[in-house]
Nucleic acid binder design. Structure first.
Length: 579
RNA sequence: CGGGUAGUAGCGCAGGGGCUAGCGCACUUGGUUCGGGACCAAGGGGUCGGAGGUUCAAAUCCUCUCUGCCCGACCA
């Protein structure tokens, strides 16, 4: 075997799963967010990919492969050449032509589809690939969870209409649950933000785990789940008769807490003002414009950045600098849109817009206004931009919401005509009309899936990946000097199509067992002098630690039966969920 | 991009102006062991991330730079 096991974890391995993948020799790091899959890791991902392939074929997918390097032209057509920032790697070729490393393949596949799918008779279609993506993430972390280069399953659907899209979207919804559960990974689907993909409806598949970076808001009672980026919740409004504005001195009250305490009021009776700067990119020519965004939420709530970014239709947002705020004559700590001047976008959460007589900043250090009212005292766009937190009321049933950390392992999008329109991908219908194709795109991170599996399946001795995704099915440990019998067993099992890792090293039993536990192949067969005398091998299951023995004469049948049992146990638990 | 932290042998670490840079694991050779990370002996391997500087003398001090890891990407 090319790789070796390590006794000690390389520094920086902060989760068990990541530590064991490194120590067992599944992966090796080459740079920030850049990893090699060593033979063990590669074999495991191959098994994952085979499961994916079966399920994608089952919903009618055709596997294909598109280039990683794309001419920038097609990315300019959709505008994403301009709207995506540094996350996409770019270069020019020898002829000085703009090129990009595709971080996803909507442009590439649409470019092909516009010539292939010219008639309603050729629809619907579904294609997929499993291929390398490069995304220059500003901060890769947590081993394989967040990397810059990775293998992704991505599929693209083409339909005549939204009914067709809905059908294939539901097929993916179901297929993804089958894929994850066939790998042995528990997952949930949550409503999600469509981000840079555009489009309306989108779901993320989450593996719930403390190592996750996403926060999922969910309701135990009615089953509502959503990524916090878009999660809704019920807000109480404070409606009352509007009172006249009154300016009061509030020295040293720069935070809502200080202000509420000083005035002896509930933070819910205040309006909090948050400043961000949005970048707005012109899709046609890439020209960028920055604009101050003033976000108002009620004092007890917090702004959800992605909601705000969507509400302002900004490509990206960042916190504003003091000078940028001052340029619109507002005073941080004592700010509100009242009396502000200059060019800015004001987004008002409905919690503020629908409540009356809130305390807000007077844009003068040490002073606030009492009884401010949206509409009367200032204007703006009303949108939900508040962040859902644990304990808030479920938008569907009102029960207290809960939250959990999760890792996004898959994502499905209803794109609609966002790409077909900008790239002129149309089909001709029965009446000879040109109609834009209705598209969907769908993705699963293969390496991330392996990372999650390593996180889910380990113990104090190492990994214990489930049978369907373990790099090998059997780990054969020979402890006798004469290799003849072990060689014969290895050859027989291999001939029967069983994946065997054969430890014929001249190491002590302890070393071999420790390595076997660390690598975590589901079935360990040990050939020692004791059992050999009886014509037997010892069997130990990695998942349960259960031990027994097989007669050497029956070994292939016995092993096959155990493999089938373990696979069946997973298959029995395959999740079938409909959207 | 900001903050923190660290780069010394394949991995984990010590050494913090002075003469040949060390320890554990791993590796090589010989021998003894041989069912849960064996033992003895003898070895090989690093110029201390990089560049520049200070000094009689730099892994060690200074400046710049590169890279990894962690935190923050945010409520004024």
């Amino acid at each position: 075997m090319f790789s070796r096991t390590l006794r000690e974890a390389p520094s920086g391995a902060d989760s068990k799963g990541y530590e064991y993948l490194l120590r067992a020799g599944y992966i090796e790091q080459m740079g920030a967010g850049i990893f090699s899959l060593l033979p063990l890791g590669f074999k495991a991902t191959q098994k994952i990919q085979n499961i994916i392939r079966e399920e994608m074929n089952a919903i009618g997918g055709e596997e294909m492969q598109m280039p990683v390097v794309n001419p920038a032209d097609i990315w300019k057509e959709t505008g994403r050449f301009y709207s995506i920032d540094k996350e996409m790697a770019r270069f020019t070729d020898r002829n000085n032509r703009d090129m990009v490393l595709a971080m996803t393949h909507e442009e590439a596949v649409t470019d092909i589809a516009r010539t292939e799918l010219d008639s309603y008779k050729r629809l619907p279609r579904l294609v997929y690939q499993m291929q390398t993506k490069f995304r220059d993430d500003p901060r890769p972390r947590a081993g394989l969870i967040r990397v810059r280069e990775f293998t992704m399953l991505d599929s693209y659907s083409f339909d005549r209409d939204y009914e067709g899209l809905d059908r294939i979207y539901r097929d993916h919804y179901r297929a993804y649950f089958r894929i994850f559960s066939r790998c042995g990974l528990p997952s949930i689907a949550v409503g999600a933000d469509s981000g840079m993909m555009g489009g309306k409806i989108s779901h993320e598949y989450m593996y719930l785990s403390p190592i996750g970076e996403d926060t999922i808001i969910y309701c135990d009672k009615c089953g509502y789940t959503a990524n916090r980026q878009i999660a809704r919740f019920q807000k109480e409004y404070f409606k009352e008769e509007m009172k006249p504005v009154e300016k009061v001195a509030t020295p040293e009250c720069k935070t809502i807490e200080e202000l509420a305490e000083f005035l002896g009021i509930d933070p819910r009776k205040t309006a909090k003002c948050v400043f961000m700067v949005g970048t707005f990119v012109n899709d046609r020519n890439g020209e960028e414009e920055e604009k101050l965004i003033v976000a108002l939420v009620r004092g007890d709530l917090e702004v959800e950045e992605s909601k705000l970014s969507n509400a302002a239709r900004a490509n990206s947002i960042r916190p504003a600098h003091e000078e940028e705020i001052a340029a619109c004559s507002m005073v941080p700590g004592y700010a509100s849109p009242i009396g502000a001047t200059g060019d800015f976008i004001c987004i008002v959460d409905d919690s503020v817009a629908e409540s009356n007589n809130l305390v807000a900043g007077a844009n003068e250090a040490g002073y606030h206004y009492l009884n401010t009212n949206f509409g009367r005292d200032y204007q703006g766009t009303v949108k939900d931009i508040a962040s859902a937190r644990e304990g808030m009321a479920c938008p569907e049933c009102g029960a207290p919401l809960k939250s959990s950390k999760g890792v996004e392992i898959g994502n499905i999008f209803q794109l609609g005509t966002r790409y077909s329109e900008s790239m002129n991908c149309t089909y001709q219908d029965e009446n000879g009309r040109q109609i834009p194709v209705v598209m969907g795109s769908y993705g699963i991170g293969v390496g991330r899936l392996l990372a999650c599996l390593a996180e889910e399946y380990n113990d104090e001795s190492g990994l214990k990946l489930p049978m369907p995704v373990a790099p090998y099915q059997v780990h054969l440990v020979s402890l006798v000097k004469d290799p003849a019998v072990a060689d014969r067993i290895y050859e027989e099992l291999t001939r029967k199509g069983i994946d065997v890792l054969y430890d014929d090293r001249n190491e002590t039993a302890g070393v071999k067992f420790a390595d076997a536990d660390l690598i975590g192949i589901p079935i360990r067969l040990t050939l020692g002098s004791r059992s050999l005398k009886e014509g037997k091998v010892e069997v130990r299951l990695r998942s349960t630690g259960e031990t027994s023995s097989y007669l050497i004469d029956d070994i292939a049948e016995e092993v096959k039966a155990e493999i089938d049992r373990e696979i069946q146990a997973i298959e029995d638990k395959v999740v079938e969920k409909e959207l």
